[in-house]
Design a protein around this nucleic acid. Structure first.
Lengths: 342, 342
DNA sequence: ATGAAAGCGCTAACAG
DNA sequence: CTGTTAGCGCTTTCAT
């Protein structure tokens, strides 16, 4: 290991210009004569100079870094969000500092992010204590909750209209005249689950139905499988089930088909939420409510960068529409409402 | 937005100590009297002081940041790696700077990472030009290629024994006495594909067989589906196919079962590579070669942190064993080699 | 154990 | 357009 730290001073000396001239050469909007720029670039190339982004960030007060906090990546929805969001951020000349968190202790992680002088924070499938959100606000750091919503928080949020999504599923079940309708919940303390379930129950009620049974899957594969076993080994088993997200729905389908030998959708209809890629795969072919990931990410980026540009934090809540994607785990109907055969 | 930048100087003034005393209080191994520490902590709390990690990194020359470069996250293998690796890094007091790259222009991204003074680089499903790898080496930045291998490069690497994995699949097909054996390749310029294919062909040859047909899936779902269509609509269709990874194998299974109405494994056996979670799901129940993700990540972290501690870059190549996971897409045999019925 | 002083590598006024 | 001059917030000798 050797002295490989080439500084702008070294370049200046070799190019016989001032150190500021070097700085200007590497600053997009600065004014340098073609001749100076040339000399500097030649010297920089010769020495293998690279500006130190940390020093730059320190003095300019802009780290060009955005923190992304994610709780888990086994649900395919999040890797996709992560990938697209990272690309969006990179395209705008920013970097992503990634933090994996447990659904509990985010606050310690946020502390860490702030020490790194991130300019903004995005939390996917995770929330922030209102206290810390306020602190971020005071520090001028915009925070966006992605796919979560916290009523009193100063943090912005981007969600789909989960309640409307739940209602779409209820309507579908009503149309198919199901009798014993069940719900498998995600994490009960999440806003997504609350809203989906609320919309679903609301929709059923509007059609004069009530829930036959309910279990909790906690947004995990294993727990959802267990929930399915519980619900479908009752004396009177459900003939339709709405599962809080696709990831759990796959577990439910596995149990129904391969452990309980039920035929979907003939004996039971299943609907998920998210429309992750696997839902479109023929091995599952899952009817689901689509969350418009692309649009959600675009909104997130828009909110974030607007606040960064205007240099002020201003809460904004974006709620995007979702739509039902009917596939093979539910009965199909044609335009007249008559059952359609596949 | 306001002057919320509380510095160690502010804390020092309030606590009536020197600025260095504040610094020491926040430096783990430093010597401060209990009394001073107390005063400083009280003042810091009162002002809401948080050390600036950037300034700290600049002066100490240690950013405690590791760059992670990933090409795509739609193959579930990588999100899992990403999650586990991030956690491993965080546990050791480092942060992850994430970069999504296209399989082509990594070098520009690497340039960016180096400006941010990362202490190490991990490249997953991507490679680095030997030139830049050398530059990293010279700069004292360890580089680990995860799941890739580049012969002449000074970068370290962590891979599974892909060649042995290919041979395992060949042996399985030989044991099942398949006649028309096909291969669907991943990205042809990747070391993983080269090694898997080489081991597979080697294994077939050892059993006196040769490949019946071959197509390229490029590690993508869509291209793999197309490859399956091509291979399985020949006059003489294969009775067994080894697919370069699980992600492509799902596409292949969808085409075989739902477009071509073939029964797996009765009419055709299918084997993948990786053992991603979906392979264990009953909707696919895919026979595959397991890559030991946990062990690979442990090795990556070990190599990286050893080099960071010893403060010198020293190439190391870890090759981990893989094993066959037999599931429902191939015929089962008992210990005696006789077919077993499921 | 503590404070004073010297920078880390760079940008941002400010003159010229 | 260019060089000079101050720092950004912190760690790290070096005395005391």
């Amino acid at each position: 290991m050797n002295r490989t730290t080439v500084t702008s001073g070294d370049v200046a000396r070799l190019a016989k210009v001032s150190q500021s001239a070097v700085s200007r050469t590497f600053t997009p909007g600065a004014s340098v004569s073609a001749k100076t720029r040339e000399k500097v670039e030649a010297a920089a190339r010769e020495l293998g100079y690279r500006p130190n982004a940390l020093a730059r960030a320190m003095i300019s007060g802009r780290s060009r870094t955005i923190a992304l906090l994610v709780a888990y990546l086994d649900n395919q929805f999040y890797p996709i969000v992560l990938e697209q969001f990272s690309r969006a951020v990179q395209d705008r000349g920013y970097r992503v500092l990634l933090f994996m968190t447990d659904p509990g202790n985010q606050d310690a992680v946020v502390e860490d992010m702030m020490q790194y002088q991130v300019e903004a924070v995005v939390m996917a499938s995770a929330t922030l204590s209102t206290g810390l959100a306020q602190e971020c606000e005071r520090a001028g750091i915009p925070v966006v909750l992605f796919n979560r919503y916290v009523p009193g928080s100063p943090a912005s949020s981007v969600t789909t209209d989960n309640r409307a999504g739940g209602r779409l599923v209820a309507d579908l079940f009503l149309r198919a005249q199901h009798e014993r309708i069940a719900y498998i919940a995600g994490a009960e303390d999440s806003s997504t689950n609350r809203d989906r379930e609320f919309g679903f129950l609301e929709g059923l009620a509007a059609g004069g139905k009530h829930l036959h049974s309910r279990a909790v899957g906690g947004y995990t594969f294993a727990q959802a499988a267990q929930a399915a076993r519980t619900l479908f080994t009752q004396k009177e088993r459900p003939d339709a089930v709405f599962v809080g997200n696709d990831h759990m729905a796959f577990a439910v389908l596995d149990v129904l088909r391969h452990e309980l030998d039920l035929v979907v959708p003939r004996e039971v209809s299943v609907v998920g939420f998210d429309n992750v890629p696997e839902s479109g795969w023929k091995g599952y072919d899952l009817t689901t409510v689509e969350q418009p990931a692309d649009a959600m990410i675009r909104e997130t980026a828009r909110i974030l960068f607007r606040q960064l540009e205007e240099r002020q934090v201003e809460k904004e809540d974006a709620v995007l529409p979702c739509r039902l994607i009917e596939r093979g785990t539910t009965h199909q109907f044609d335009e007249t409402g008559a059952p359609r055969h596949r």
